[in-house]
Design a protein around this nucleic acid. Structure first.
Length: 426
RNA sequence: GUGGCUGUAGUUCAGUUGGCAGAACACCUGGUUGUGGCCCAGGGGGUCGUGGGUUCGAGUCCCACCAGUCACCCCA
């Protein structure tokens, strides 16, 4: 490498050709399934007014969350932010474009990059890509089921096992505060068992203690109050209905009362899909219901539920599961030549073949280049048939067709090349 | 923001008590006019992450910084 060349930013990645088959596979499968489930594509800007994410994510959420956003203060006083997630932007687009006047609910999906300024680690990058699906305008638990099953179907179709649903309810403004008080009271009675870190969490965001990784917390939290015992009637029946639907589908899930969200706008259902063997970041998908988000953005009360799934983590899980994507097609034929008039003829034939729909590679050479060198190139490119445009063949108005997959070299008239090559089954 | 581990060719890595910078693979060229793969020969490519220090001499020892990686914090 040359000295002082500009390098990639920390936490950003190049996706080289070798990796593209994974992206193609996942993108194709996600679009296919989303549309089979009746979701329509919505793409939103990568940059939005900072207020969207500050209000959406909530100033009452963690201060740290905002520190991890890429926010740019423009010279004219405008503040803009690279999207750290999709949900707030989807709700903004729903409100702004009058989607509440469409047949309800509206089912939308997208796929694209999101940005978070955090320290990279396994499966976490500063730019990552998400497949995102949302159902807006519907409070039926069947909508929760729908997005959950879309996520699960994607992973199944991609062909890996070892997946589990983690399911919980986070309540609503009517019942969540009561639960938080009960949890606080319990923890304060056991303050001496809390690490300094968890004592800090207790002050800042007590729910977060539930997914604490500090020692001894498993035992302590086993006796802690569970939110499911504190749900209001509405939240309780919603959760019961969702469980009933999952049972009816014979879709297994694990109730995880320690599954929490760090963001304010979540209500009722929260869920994740965990995959085995991808390190500390086991979740390939996280989602939930957000019935109070629309109001936080200044809109009318509008229920919503959805999930986001990190593509990089899916790829990581696929590799871990030994799933290999299909390889991309390579050019079927390659034109080689010896410069001069043979080069001109090779160039003409190349574009003629491509117009006929045949994937064609052209040998490049500023000077006369040995046939050996050109054939070596063709071999490495896994070309199936080489078309040799040589002086002697050209003198008879022909070219040589050399199959690299075995078989005899043949000679074909220039005018018949397209027809003959088209008849091959590549 | 915090901590562990790791930084030598495009890649994976070796490099002895401090003494001329290496291998494999990959890439390029050639092996008698223009015939691939296998084989053989040759070639290009490195401020040894960066900067300082110790030393006659540092890839090697010391310090700082940077980057990668894994974990924590946080996780939309």
């Amino acid at each position: 490498m040359f000295l002082n060349t500009i390098q990639r930013l920390q936490g950003f990645q190049d996706v080289l050709p070798d990796e593209q088959p994974y992206w193609d596979l996942i993108g194709r499968q996600a679009r296919l399934l989303a549309e089979r489930f009746g979701f329509q594509r919505l793409d939103i800007p990568i940059i939005e007014n900072s207020d969207l994410y500050q209000r959406g994510v909530g100033t009452g959420s963690d201060f740290f969350v905002q520190k991890e956003m890429y926010t740019i203060e423009e010279g004219d006083g405008e503040s803009i932010t690279l999207r750290p997630e999709f949900t707030a932007g989807f709700m903004r687009a729903y409100l702004e474009n009058g989607l509440s006047n469409w047949v309800q609910p509206v089912k939308l999906y997208t796929i694209g990059p999101a940005f978070r300024r955090e320290r990279p680690q396994a499966g976490r990058f500063r730019q990552h890509s998400q497949f995102n699906a949302e159902i807006i305008g519907e409070s039926d638990p069947a909508a929760d089921l729908e997005v959950m099953m879309l996520a699960m179907s994607l992973y199944r179709e991609l062909g890996f096992a070892g997946l589990t649903f983690q399911l919980n309810s986070t309540g609503c403004p009517a019942c969540k505060p009561t639960y938080i008080e009960a949890l606080k009271t319990f923890l304060q009675d056991h303050l001496e068992k809390l690490s300094p870190l968890d004592q800090e969490r207790l002050r800042r965001n007590p729910l977060r203690i539930l997914d604490s990784k500090e020692k001894g917390m498993d035992e302590l939290l086993a006796d802690a109050p569970h939110i499911l015992n504190y749900l209001c009637a509405d939240c309780e029946s919603h959760f019961a209905d969702l469980r009933g639907l999952l049972d009816a589908l014979e879709q297994s899930y694990t109730i995880n009362f320690r599954l929490v969200r760090g963001i304010d706008y979540y209500t009722k259902t929260v869920f994740e899909v965990w995959a085995e063997g991808i390190g500390a970041q086991a979740a390939v998908c996280g989602g939930g219901r957000y019935d109070i988000l629309a109001e936080a953005l200044g809109g009318p009360p509008t229920p919503g539920v959805g999930f986001g799934s990190g593509i990089e983590r899916i790829i990581r899980a696929l590799k871990e599961n030994g799933v290999h994507p299909p390889l991309p097609p390579v050019p079927s034929v390659m034109l080689v030549h010896f410069g001069g008039r043979t080069k001109e003829e090779a160039v003409k034939l190349t574009y003629t073949l491509r117009q006929a729909g045949i994937a064609t590679r052209l040998a490049f050479a500023r000077e006369r280049r040995s046939l050996k060198s050109q054939l070596r190139e063709a071999n490495k490119q896994q070309i199936q048939t080489v078309i040799i445009v040589g002086e002697s063949e050209l003198a008879e108005g022909k070219v040589a067709l050399r199959p690299l997959t075995g078989g005899e070299q043949t000679f074909v008239a220039l005018s018949e090349v397209v027809g003959v090559v088209s008849s091959f089954e590549f």
